[in-house]
C-alpha cells in the first residue's frame, strides 16, 4: 500500500490543500507579529468568530454563501481594527506580555460570548461546494478545499499588492523594520496598528469563512487553529508572509504523509518536531527575517 502511487498522490493532494488552508489561517498571526511585534492569543477566536458570523448571516439574514462570506470577512476587518485599538494600541510601548494577556482575555470573552449567544450545540454551515468531489486518475479533489486553495491565492496576491503598492501597506512594512524611525518621519503609528489589526482579522475571518463549511462549528474550534498557526509562523520565519505560505504547505504535506504512512499520534507530533528542528537549525526561520526584540 505504501508504494501505491495513487495513495501517495492522494496524500500529496491532501497535504497541499490542507497546507494552503494552514497558511491562510496563519497569515493574520504573521502580520500582527511581523508588523507590530505582538503575539495575538485571540487568533483562534478570530477564526471561530468568522465562522459563526457566516452561520449567522446565512441562517438569520438568509444570505447565500458567497455574499455572506465576503460581507462577514469585511465585518471582521472592523472587529480587528477595534481589537487593535483597544488592546494593542495602548500597549505598543509596553513589553509584549500585556498584549499576550489582553488578547488571551479577548479570546476567553469571545469563546463564552459565542457559547451564550449560539448555544454549545455544534452547528453546520452549508456551502454549495461542500459535497463536491472530483476524481482525477484515482485521486480525489474536494470542491470546498479547492475553494480554500483559490481563496489563498487571491488573498495572498491581494495582500502582496497591498503591502507593496498602497500607502498604508508601505507604512506597515516600514513599521515592521523600525517603529521608532516611523514615528520620526511622521507615520501615524496608531493608525497603522489599527489597519494591521483590520487586515489580520479580515484574513483570519476569511479563513474561518472558507474552511468552516468543512467542519462543524463550536465555540472552541479555534484552539487547534492557533497552535497550527503558531507552528506555521515559526517555521516560516516570524512575520514573513511568504515564508508562512511555504511553511503551511510543508507542514500540510509532512502531516499528511506522517498520518497516512504512520498514524495519528505521529502526525500530531510532527508539527512540533519540525518546528523545534527548524529553530535549532535556523533560529531565524526558514526564510530568515528576524524581528528584533
Amino acid at each position: 500500500m505504501a508504494t501505491d502511487p495513487v495513495f501517495l498522490a492522494q496524500l500529496a493532494a491532501n497535504g497541499f490543500s490542507v497546507g494552503l488552508g494552514y497558511a491562510l489561517a496563519a497569515v493574520g498571526l504573521a502580520l500582527i507579529f511581523g508588523i507590530l511585534g505582538q503575539v495575538n492569543f485571540a487568533h483562534g477566536e478570530l477564526y471561530m468568530l468568522g465562522a459563526f458570523l457566516l452561520f449567522w448571516a446565512m441562517k438569520q439574514l438568509g444570505l447565500p454563501y458567497g455574499i455572506a462570506a465576503v460581507l462577514m470577512a469585511a465585518l471582521m476587518a472592523g472587529f480587528g481594527a477595534l481589537l487593535a485599538h483597544v488592546v494593542i494600541v495602548p500597549n505598543l510601548d509596553r513589553g509584549f506580555e500585556s498584549v499576550v494577556l489582553g488578547t488571551l482575555a479577548v479570546g476567553i470573552i469571545l469563546q463564552n460570548a459565542v457559547r451564550l449567544g449560539f448555544g454549545a450545540t455544534p452547528l453546520d454551515v452549508a456551502s454549495p461546494l461542500e459535497s463536491q468531489a472530483f476524481e482525477i486518475g484515482g485521486v480525489l479533489l474536494f470542491g470546498q478545499r479547492m475553494l480554500v486553495c483559490a481563496t489563498f491565492l487571491a488573498a495572498f496576491s491581494g495582500l502582496y499588492a497591498f503591502l507593496r503598492y498602497s500607502e498604508i501597506g508601505r507604512a506597515m512594512r516600514a513599521m515592521a523594520q523600525n517603529r521608532e524611525a516611523c514615528v520620526m518621519v511622521g507615520i501615524d503609528v496608531r493608525r497603522v496598528t489599527r489597519w494591521t489589526g483590520a487586515l489580520a482579522a479580515a484574513l483570519t475571518g476569511l479563513a474561518g469563512v472558507v474552511i468552516s463549511p468543512l467542519f462543524d462549528l463550536y465555540p472552541n474550534m479555534g484552539t487547534e487553529v492557533v497552535i497550527k498557526s503558531f507552528a506555521v509562523v515559526i517555521i516560516g520565519g516570524m512575520g514573513n508572509i511568504w515564508g508562512a505560505a511555504i511553511a503551511g504547505v510543508a507542514l500540510g504535506l509532512a502531516e499528511s504523509y506522517a498520518g497516512g504512512l504512520g498514524n495519528a499520534a505521529i502526525r500530531d507530533g510532527i508539527a512540533f518536531i519540525v518546528m523545534i528542528a527548524m529553530l535549532l537549525a535556523r533560529p531565524q526561520g526558514l526564510f530568515g527575517r528576524t524581528v528584533r526584540v
Binding site: 500500500m1 495513495f7 490542507v18 498514524n263 499520534a265
Partner: peptide
C-alpha cells in the same frame, strides 16, 4: 489493519480516510 487516535479537537480526518480507502 490500522489504529488511529486523534486529539479530541482534531477536525481533519484526511490521512486516516486516505489510508482506509487504500487498505
Amino acid at each position: 489493519v490500522s489504529e488511529d487516535y486523534l486529539k479530541q479537537t482534531e477536525t481533519d480526518f484526511l490521512p486516516v480516510l486516505t489510508r482506509i480507502r487504500a487498505s
